[in-house]
Computed example of a mutant assay.
Amino acid sequence: MKSTNRGTLAAVITGVAAAMAATASPAAAVDTVPVPVPLQGVENSLNVELPKLGGEIPLPKPGAPEGPQYVEGRLIPERVIPQLPVSGGLPGVGVRAPLPHVLGDDFDHVAVGAPASDLRTLAPGLSVDAPLTAPNPENFGLPELKLPQAGVLAPVLQTVPAADLGIGPGL
């Protein structure tokens, strides 16, 4: 292959990679999707000032489960059915309503904001053990009997929601 062909091929591959990275990175960086509530038509038709409403819907992202863990003395590894982590968020909401100078001339609106907050979950899992022990050298290498064990790994839900309440000038 000539050096001019190699250079052209390298430029094309670089351009395609840059184009794919430019189109893929904004979508991958989005954690929430904004949801505006359009009320301008109602405001214009009724000639009144309505609250401004909006929200955010988080996008759930599944994670990689932890694999089975081998424990000395057990024939079957722990976490036979591993817990699947999913991270996302609680939906957010924002409301900003007009306030007709109830608290003085400087206060024209009341606002409530509850931003989308992080949410981390783990699905339930299962851990079991066979009714046999590991091979026992004192018993000619044969396993001994024991009670079978089964356990359910409890699901986990972690989040810290927040909200803001405020009043101020302007809408």
Results as ranks from 00 to 15, higher is better:
N5P: 01
R6W: 03
T8I: 15
L9Y: 04
A11C: 14
A11H: 07
G15L: 13
V16T: 14
A19C: 13
A19M: 15
M20W: 07
A21P: 00
A24F: 12
A24S: 14
S25Q: 07
P26D: 11
A27I: 07
A29E: 11
V30G: 03
D31R: 06
V33M: 12
V33P: 04
P34I: 03
P38C: 06
L39K: 07
G41A: 12
G41K: 09
S45E: 09
L46H: 04
N47P: 00
N47Y: 01
E49C: 08
E49R: 14
E49L: 14
E49T: 15
P51E: 01
P51T: 06
P51G: 02
K52E: 07
G54I: 04
G54R: 01
P60G: 03
P62A: 02
P65E: 09
E66C: 05
Q69G: 11
Y70V: 14
Y70Q: 10
E72W: 04
E72N: 08
G73Y: 04
E78Q: 15
E78A: 15
E78D: 15
P82Q: 12
L84T: 01
P85N: 10
V86Q: 11
S87I: 04
L90S: 09
V93K: 08
G94K: 07
R96F: 01
A97D: 08
P98G: 10
P98I: 05
P98K: 01
P100N: 10
V102Q: 09
V102K: 14
G104V: 06
G104D: 04
D105Y: 05
H109V: 05
V110F: 12
V110M: 11
G113C: 02
G113N: 10
A116D: 08
A116S: 15
R120I: 01
T121F: 06
L122N: 11
A123E: 00
G125W: 11
L126R: 02
S127N: 13
V128A: 05
A134K: 02
A134H: 04
P135G: 06
P135L: 04
P135D: 02
E138K: 12
N139K: 10
N139I: 10
G141H: 06
L142I: 02
P143T: 00
E144C: 01
E144K: 03
L145W: 02
K146A: 06
K146M: 05
L147F: 04
L147A: 15
P148D: 08
Q149L: 08
A150I: 13
A150S: 12
L153M: 13
A154H: 06
A154V: 07
L157F: 05
A163M: 13
D164R: 00
L165I: 11
G166E: 10
G166P: 02
I167C: 06
I167Y: 00
I167M: 15
I167P: 04
G168V: 05
P169D: 03
L171D: 05
L171I: 12
